[in-house]
């Protein structure tokens, strides 16, 4: 399985990094790390351009992050109109990992504040689609 059911609209399927989706189905949001040089990657890379190794290992992004910035999108592009309004956000996690995802619908917009504590969790969407989102940490 690849990225065909990822997000609201997916634009491609195959990738070496598609194990990400298998882990996501199992309830885990993962990043990769190069065992040789220790660099970690999110979005996950299946290769390490730092030391040119093709061997990376997966690890789960656990723990709490912080909301760095966000926007409430009212104007959805074609294919996303029915999702709007949705909130895009950047969260900072341990080890210099930054993630872009949507904020969960159960966070009231009046509660949103820079620096608020977040966790990143898988999100099952209708029609077998899957994604990840931020919830309050």
């Amino acid at each position: 399985m690849g990225f065909e059911n990822f997000g609201t609209v997916s634009f491609t399927t195959e990738a070496k990094a598609a194990d990400f989706i298998t882990y996501l189905e199992q309830g885990k949001v993962m990043a990769t790390r190069c065992p040789k040089c220790g660099v970690s990657y999110f979005p996950p890379k299946a290769d390490c351009p730092s030391c040119l190794s093709g061997e990376v290992e997966w690890f789960e992004i656990k723990g709490k992050g912080k909301l760095a910035t966000y926007t409430i999108v009212n104007y959805g592009p074609s294919g996303f109109e029915n999702d709007a309004p949705y909130i895009l956000a950047l969260g900072e996690f341990e080890g210099g990992i930054q993630i872009m995802a949507r904020l969960s619908k159960d966070i009231a917009s009046s509660d949103i504040e820079a620096g608020m504590s977040l966790v990143v969790v898988p999100l099952k969407r209708p029609e077998g689609r899957i994604s990840y989102e931020f919830k309050k940490g």
């Binding site: 609201t8 609209v9 634009f11 990738a15 910035t69 709007a84």
Partner: peptide, 20 residues
């Protein structure tokens, strides 16, 4: 692969810079 499927747009990207 990683960001367009969330509905990222040009204005939304710049809006995140604006907020920050």
């Amino acid at each position: 692969i990683w960001e367009s499927p969330f509905g990222l747009t040009m204005p939304a990207g710049y809006a995140m810079y604006a907020r920050a």
